[in-house]
Design a protein around this nucleic acid. Sequence first.
DNA 1: GTTATATGTGTATTATTTACACTTATTTAA
DNA 2: TTAAATAAGTGTAAATAATACACATATAAC
Lengths: 229, 229
Amino acid sequence: MSPFYQAFEKVYIAIDCIIFGFGEGQLKVLTIRRDFEPELGKLSLPGGFLKPEENLHEAAKHILENLTGLRNIYMEQLHAFGELSRDPADRVISVAYYALIKIDQELEELDRAHDARWFPVAEMPKLIFDHDQMVKKAFDMLKLKAKYQPIGFELLPEKFTIPQLQTLYESINQVRYDRRNFSKKIHAMQLLQKLGEKQKDTSKKGAYLYQFDRLRYDELKKKGYNFEL
Amino acid sequence: MSPFYQAFEKVYIAIDCIIFGFGEGQLKVLTIRRDFEPELGKLSLPGGFLKPEENLHEAAKHILENLTGLRNIYMEQLHAFGELSRDPADRVISVAYYALIKIDQELEELDRAHDARWFPVAEMPKLIFDHDQMVKKAFDMLKLKAKYQPIGFELLPEKFTIPQLQTLYESINQVRYDRRNFSKKIHAMQLLQKLGEKQKDTSKKGAYLYQFDRLRYDELKKKGYNFEL
DNA sequence: GTTATATGTGTATTATTTACACTTATTTAA
DNA sequence: TTAAATAAGTGTAAATAATACACATATAAC
């Protein structure tokens, strides 16, 4: 306890997470039902209060980990939300983080245990406090980031097809791309490794599987290369 | 005082401002000498503690206003900094804001009264705590933003010349542009109004003065236009 | 009136983006 | 077994944007 700042007031710090996933051709956000008052039982972003021994990023990681069991997740700070009455119970500053995860089987089960649900970003229900605003801002940020950094791959399985990748970017940017031009652009980057296998989930012909070549990307970046899509 | 959150701990919230200005062909950042302990007298970003009746943005505006006397300034939140011992005196989360201002005569005098100094971003001295990191991050953000939004004009006087504008963007992006191509690109945007007058500060021939046509930009933006430089 | 300096402008070349159509592999139904 | 349906894979021409580059002009200083 320092003598210097006693004239000032402290506030609660909350951490809220906008967790994006991609499934059934749609970009989705993970919600939970809030398990404490106020607004108990209402739809909310996963979150919690900052603990004295955590820095902000760790706090966000812990929330994500407790909810999904996942580690090593792409996560970045979005914004600090500090309107006076954003939480009617008390003055709380919320630092929001957004994360990109790969939705898979095990995850879906974990979600049920926490009463978590995925909603397509286009069909988000009303959330508590200013969480709607957080989702909107996170989506805007995702659009911006996805354009200049290869973060889309965080939302896809390790192995994915070009049509999958295209659908993902169409969901993020809310536009449609020409299949030939998209494919051409992706291949021109030379950041994908083509695997022998084909995936036949959505097509009779089957589509080749690829994986993102992170090593190559890191190398190119060092040499001044800038990803852009 | 709400009964719900008593189990959690509160922390101090500081606001720090990275104030960018442009003068003598250089992009600069405003520093002050800290007037309270700890680190009294050391170089620091202008800042202060969040008051209970202010939201974050207001708090940042007040700091800027008190220091410079300026209102209606371009200002945006940069990031919340929350490392455990970023301030050795106590746990303090700092929400950093960056602002873009036009350096002019009156301002320079006000600065002296507050013991404020401008440093070129390339020659920043050591600042207290994590303020160096804040400046770096703010500069990165400025680079990014300036590319896709017409915020450069916030740093120039109302009336400016094309060469001035070019020097500004060269400072921000730390590159050199071809004079002919830069001029062509700017004119193609049709966002500048050419004024009759010429400015002869730096040249014997003199350069035409322009001003940014904000109305036109707002119109174009509504129609889906995206500024890019 | 000559020189030095920063400004203003145009064109040809190259690279990038866009528009667009047919072939292929495979499953399902006739 | 053959035909139809479906999604995947690929190439080329046209339009647009980015780049490289050189000379003319106004004026202050000598």
